[in-house]
Simulated assay, not measured.
Amino acid sequence: MFGRIIMRIHPKQNIHAKIYIFREEVYHPHGYGSVITGSGNLTEAGLENNFEFNVELRYDDNIKFATETFEKL
């Protein structure tokens, strides 16, 4: 079963960087998920045409921080 996609934008800042959070519904310390952050878009331009730089984070602390920050938006 596939999950859902939730999108948010910052109401007062023009932020170019994107944060993609992938995580399991239930926390477990082995492969809980990952966070991709950077300038790339998940479009043809972002994936093939432009030079974009993204970083994948897999540590639980990074996933927790990204999720908490996202929920505050």
Results as ranks from 00 to 15, higher is better:
residue 62 N to K: 06
residue 53 F to H: 14
residue 32 Y to F: 15
residue 42 L to R: 02
residue 10 H to F: 10
residue 11 P to L: 10
residue 20 Y to L: 03
residue 21 I to A: 05
residue 17 A to F: 10
residue 26 V to S: 13
residue 34 S to V: 02
residue 14 N to L: 12
residue 44 E to I: 13
residue 16 H to F: 11
residue 35 V to L: 06
residue 11 P to Y: 07
residue 33 G to K: 05
residue 62 N to T: 02
residue 29 P to V: 09
residue 59 Y to T: 06
residue 1 M to W: 09
residue 49 N to Q: 13
residue 21 I to C: 04
residue 42 L to V: 01
residue 23 R to N: 11
residue 61 D to A: 09
residue 56 E to C: 07
residue 40 G to M: 00
residue 2 F to K: 09
residue 19 I to S: 04
residue 42 L to A: 07
residue 45 A to H: 08
residue 71 E to W: 03
residue 69 T to M: 08
residue 73 L to G: 08
residue 35 V to N: 04
residue 32 Y to R: 06
residue 25 E to R: 12
residue 42 L to F: 04
residue 8 R to L: 11
residue 60 D to I: 06
residue 54 N to L: 02
residue 29 P to I: 08
residue 53 F to V: 15
residue 62 N to E: 15
residue 10 H to A: 13
residue 1 M to S: 12
residue 1 M to G: 14
residue 12 K to D: 12
residue 72 K to A: 11
residue 50 N to S: 11
residue 28 H to G: 14
residue 12 K to C: 07
residue 24 E to M: 07
residue 45 A to C: 07
residue 37 T to V: 13
residue 63 I to V: 08
residue 19 I to D: 03
residue 16 H to Y: 11
residue 33 G to E: 08
residue 34 S to F: 14
residue 14 N to W: 05
residue 65 F to K: 10
residue 4 R to E: 15
residue 71 E to G: 03
residue 54 N to K: 01
residue 60 D to Y: 04
residue 46 G to S: 05
residue 63 I to D: 08
residue 53 F to E: 14
residue 6 I to L: 11
residue 3 G to S: 04
residue 40 G to Q: 02
residue 57 L to F: 15
residue 14 N to Y: 10
residue 53 F to A: 12
residue 61 D to W: 04
residue 26 V to I: 15
residue 70 F to L: 07
residue 67 T to Y: 14
residue 72 K to V: 02
residue 3 G to V: 08
residue 30 H to D: 14
residue 21 I to F: 03
residue 43 T to S: 15
residue 36 I to H: 01
residue 12 K to Y: 14
residue 72 K to W: 01
residue 46 G to R: 03
residue 47 L to C: 11
residue 32 Y to Q: 10
